[in-house]
Design a protein around this nucleic acid. Structure first.
Lengths: 260, 260
DNA sequence: CGCAAGATTGAAGTACGTCAATTCCAGTGG
DNA sequence: CCACTGGAATTGACGTACTTCAATCTTGCG
C-alpha cells in the first residue's frame, strides 16, 4: 500500500490511521501474468483494483486488429474507482509484463468514504488528475510531432514515477516495448524506433535494456514543451523520504460534503 | 434546466422534486458573448457552471499560438463539477458563438449531494462519461484517418444532441467553424475543408450554413466505425418526448454511499 | 540450441501540412 | 440600397512527416 499512500499524499495529507484503514480494505492481492487483463471491455467490475507493482494500460481494440492505449498506470494508480456506477467497462485494462494488483472490497471502501475527510479528497483528486492526463495526451497526440510527443510522455512518466519513488537520479526503469509505446502515442513501432534513435543522438534520452536514462531532465522538458501543472502535484520534484505528515496536516481545507 | 434534467435521465431517473431542487440551486444565469471564456486556465473556480444554450469547448493554448480543443460541450453539459478540489484550472473553457450559462452556488449543490440519491448518481455518471468521451477522442485522433475521424465526431454529436432533444430527423445544427473543427480533430482547417467535401461527395453528410444533414445515420456510423457504447446512454436513439418518469423510476440501484 | 518476439534498417508511398491566392459572406456604415 | 470590410471557406501547388512493406538482426527464454 506504500505506493498508494505516497501518491495520495501529493494531493492531501493522509494520516497513519487513514493509511491503515486503506490497508485493511484490501481483500486480496494477486499476481497477474504478463499480458493478462485485469478487467475487460464489457465486464461489470465487482472490485476496485489497485496496481501495486508493475505496469498496466487502458486500451481498446481497433477494427484493423491493432490496439489503442489510452492510459498507462504505474504502481500506486487506481484502476477503476468509478466502475460499478456505469453498466459495463467501455475499455479493457491489461498488464504489461507481470504485475501485482490489490483487490479492494467495494463495501470496505464505501465505509471509508463515509468517514469522509482528507482521504476521500485525495482519492477524488486522483481521478481528476487522471482526466487531466487524458486531456494532455489528447493535445500531445493531436498536435506534437513524434519527437516531442515521445519526449513529453517520458517527462510525464518521470514525474509520476518520481511521486511514488520509482526514479533514480538520472532516469527510471521503462519496461515497455516499442510496440506498446507506439500504441500509446498513435505511431508505428518503426517510427518509434527511429524517433528514439533521434532523441538519443540529440543526447536527450537513451533507452537500453528497458532502462531509460535522461542526462538532463530540464533539457528534455524544454524540448518537449512539457508543463507539469496538469499533474497537480504538490511536490513537483518529490523527495523520496516520506514527508512528516504533521508537517502538512491541517493545511488542506477539509473536503466536508463538497466532494463533487 | 430542462436540458440538464433530460441529460441526467440518461443515467438514472430524476424525480420532479430533484429537478426542482436543481433549478433552485441556480444562482444566476448569464449570457457569455461570442468567443468569451467561462473560466480560464489558472483560475480557481468559485461556481459550478452549466451550459444552458449554445456551445462551448475546453481548450489549451499551444506554444505556436494555435489552440487544442479537448472537449465540446453542448447544452446540458456541466463545465466543472469538480473544480474547487484542485488548486487551479489546467485548461480554459471558452464559448463558441454566444452562450447562456447557469451559475450554481457551490453550497446549494453540496446540500443537494448530501441528500444523495439518484440525482447524485446521475451527476457522477455524467463525469464518468466525460472521461469516456476523452478516451474515445484519444483513439479517434490517434488512429483514424481524417474522414473517419470527422465522421466519428459527427456521430457522437448526433447522439449527444439527440439526448437533449436538439436534433431533427436527418441532422442537427452545427454552429462550429471549420477552424474550430480543425482544433478539435488535430487537423488543419484546409484539410477539414477537403475532408468535408469528400464526405459530401460520398453522400455521408452535408454541411451548409451551419446546418448538418445526415442522409443516413447508419451508413455514417458504419463508415466511422462508431460504437456508441462509450456514451453509456440508456436510450440510444433518444425519443424526444420526455419519457414518463414513473416508467423508469425504481429500476436503478440506489447509489447509497458508494458514490465513488 | 533454437524459436519467437521484438528491434533495427532501408526503400518507397501517402495522407497530411504549408503557403498563398481567391472567393464567399455577414455585418457595418454611408 | 450598395460599397466596404474582415473573417471564414475554398482551391491549387508543393513539401514532408509519417506509414507500409519487407528484410535482417538481436534478444530473451524453454
Amino acid at each position: 500500500m506504500d505506493v498508494l499512500v505516497k501518491k495520495l499524499r501529493q494531493f492531501a495529507s493522509v494520516s497513519e490511521a487513514d493509511a491503515q484503514a486503506l490497508a485493511d480494505a484490501v481483500q486480496d492481492v494477486r499476481l497477474v501474468p504478463a499480458g493478462g487483463d485485469i478487467i475487460r471491455e464489457g465486464d461489470k467490475a465487482a472490485h476496485v483494483h489497485l496496481l501495486l507493482d508493475g505496469w498496466a494500460v487502458r486500451y481498446k481494440h481497433l477494427a484493423d486488429g491493432g490496439r489503442s492505449i489510452m492510459a498507462v498506470l504505474v504502481p500506486g494508480d487506481i484502476c477503476d474507482v468509478h466502475a460499478g456506477l456505469l453498466r459495463a467497462m467501455d475499455h479493457s485494462l491489461g498488464v504489461v509484463g507481470e504485475a501485482e494488483v490489490a483487490y479492494f472490497s467495494r463495501g470496505a471502501l464505501d465505509t471509508l468514504f463515509e468517514r469522509g475527510g482528507l482521504l476521500t479528497k485525495a482519492l477524488f483528486c486522483s481521478t481528476l488528475v487522471d482526466e487531466a492526463i487524458l486531456r494532455e495526451w489528447l493535445l500531445n497526440i493531436g498536435r506534437r510531432p513524434a519527437g516531442e510527443r515521445l519526449a513529453h510522455l517520458l517527462c510525464e512518466l518521470s514525474l509520476r514515477l518520481g511521486a511514488v519513488g520509482l526514479t533514480v537520479e538520472d532516469g527510471y526503469r521503462l519496461p515497455l516495448s516499442q510496440i506498446v509505446l507506439a500504441d500509446m502515442l498513435g505511431l508505428t513501432p518503426v517510427h518509434i524506433n527511429r524517433t528514439l534513435k533521434t532523441l538519443g543522438k540529440a543526447n536527450l534520452v537513451s533507452l537500453d535494456k528497458k532502462e531509460l536514462t535522461i542526462p538532463n531532465l530540464e533539457r528534455l522538458i524544454d524540448f518537449a514543451g512539457f508543463d507539469p501543472s496538469y499533474l497537480h502535484q504538490l511536490n513537483n520534484l518529490a523527495d523520496d523520504r516520506s514527508p512528516s505528515p504533521s508537517k502538512r496536516r491541517g493545511q488542506e481545507p477539509s473536503l466536508g460534503s463538497s466532494w463533487l
